[in-house]
Design a binder for these strands. Sequence first.
DNA 1: GTAAAATGATTAATCGTTTAACCAGTAAAA
DNA 2: TTTTACTGGTTAAACGATTAATCATTTTAC
Lengths: 350, 350
Amino acid sequence: MTQIAKAVGVSSATVSNALSGKGRVSPKLVDKIRATAAELGYVPSNAGRALRTGRSNVLGLVLPDISNPLFPQIAQAMETAASNAGYGILIADSRGDVSTQTHAIARLIERGVDGLIIIPRRGTRIGSVNCPVAMVDTPSTPGNTVSADHWEGGEKIARHLLDLGHQNFLFVGHDPASNVQNDRIGGMKSALGNTNHHQTIWVETLVREQGDKTSLGLIDHVNSGVTAIATTSDLHALRVLTELQTAGIKVPDQVSVTGFDDLIFSSVVSPALTTVHMNMTRIAEIAIAALTDEIEATKAHTQKIHDKNGTADQQTVKADTSKVSMELMVRASSGPAVSPATPNPNGETL
Amino acid sequence: MTQIAKAVGVSSATVSNALSGKGRVSPKLVDKIRATAAELGYVPSNAGRALRTGRSNVLGLVLPDISNPLFPQIAQAMETAASNAGYGILIADSRGDVSTQTHAIARLIERGVDGLIIIPRRGTRIGSVNCPVAMVDTPSTPGNTVSADHWEGGEKIARHLLDLGHQNFLFVGHDPASNVQNDRIGGMKSALGNTNHHQTIWVETLVREQGDKTSLGLIDHVNSGVTAIATTSDLHALRVLTELQTAGIKVPDQVSVTGFDDLIFSSVVSPALTTVHMNMTRIAEIAIAALTDEIEATKAHTQKIHDKNGTADQQTVKADTSKVSMELMVRASSGPAVSPATPNPNGETL
DNA sequence: GTAAAATGATTAATCGTTTAACCAGTAAAA
DNA sequence: TTTTACTGGTTAAACGATTAATCATTTTAC
């Protein structure tokens, strides 16, 4: 910037004003400065700016479980939204461990992030941090900034199966401690009403008790009359689908299978999975907007107070819209229910 | 830091020296400074440090296709390795588009990253950038810093199938323009020798010609004697597996199916996929080490020269080890070959 | 006993940007 | 003509850390 100033013959303050458009600089001079800046290949120093303004224009993205297959979608959406708002995304992985997560957050803070986006898992408590935090979990979680309306997603998929004539359901979830999973299953149950039969199994519980390679015991359930298996994740839907297919049970002819999240593989398997799609792009935009708004506000506030200890009680950022509708993706894995009276046409008895 | 200096009654330079351990400070004073630093909750300002030292301690991770299902593994491994080396990871997504990628790289540079890790896709050319670049692609790519030994992975999986008695192979790749895919298939072919029959189909070509939902036409291949279908990705293996199962072809009884990458779902489908696992942790460690070494070297070099234009010819960073062995994961989707003489027991003729 | 060397700390400059405060002109208003 | 207001710019002080240069002391060496 000093170089530009020297080249044009003005002070560096004028260059700054010209480039930022803040002060009063004559139009001709602005053009001249812009031109020489481009000519000299000027790249603003983020460090200098960050030092002066106290803001790094970087947000931290904290994922308790980075191996989550939904992560690519999340990261992509967040990166795009942040980039559009002039922010970069610094990632932190806490591998599901709480202490590692605390550590990861601390590292991000030390790096000077202006805000945090946290995708919590289970009952993660966010320790008090002195920067704005957007939390993306599920609408029923206290402090949730924005997320997909998992409950509504559950309702949609259950109604779809009801419309197909199903009356006997099996829900497959991963982990009863997850807010998201509970909302999804809650939504499904609420759509079912009292007249339909349903049970729930949790994969993690089975795996913990019977090992990684455990069968989900789906054949018994099918033989006992279940015609629709609704899972809380495409990953489980895939497990269910292949387990059924291996057992010779036809999907969707004998049993319908549904997933959640519309993961990358959902549309390429046979039969393609009926699932619920999450508008991650919109969720990311809302989260980032809420965060940047708060950052701006904090800045203005700090200018007057100039004492950060006074604002330590802030929890998570609020957004205008806190839930984003999910979209039902009807594909080949769901079909009309076979009459419960009809015995299993395959005669498979295990 | 000034506060600490004032509190202890020394100059801020002494505080800096005490905390960094660089200058000469008496042990007692070091202890005292450390104590007051902790007491005051001192967090070093990255901006200040970055401004003075010219290094941000942040690396950029560029992924041309962030929706790649391998991304979680990559991101996690890179983040951990970088974190251990004292660096943060700023992500950039270029959504497969070349111009977007150039833009993304420029953004990272502007943010002041000290180095770049680039996972290229297809024949991506890295434009000259004035910071160290580590490229993770495949050993046969010029400029590759480190990657999995995809060729060897192909050999391993082909030998595994050969050991099971297979003689008629179908290779399923995504895209003939990918270096990684070509190496994988190249390795498989080289292990086969001349006595075994093989063909290759490319999914992207089929999708482009016949639409997204196209069948891979596997049944024809199976009927014509193929007993082993080896894919270059678990995603394709999954597609193959479910397409076969839907058609009533038993895996692995009639046909063996193998994948690549050991993606998250590979072990939970039925039958679990035989695949090749990539030691991403090690790859990340090597890449980050090569990058940080170069950063250190550049720093030392710059101190003397102090003219960055002179070092513009550097391409990508070199590592001691440029390929990391892949591990064969034998699971349930591969089994002994049925005799090619035996007609298809299912009698399925399409 | 004096020169040389090591010790432990300080000074002050520097990185690049922003911004409040100030100033010299010129134009409009009284 | 004097006062007021605006215009287009400059000055200089931050922001927080690092580090070369310097300076008293004290220790060691010959």
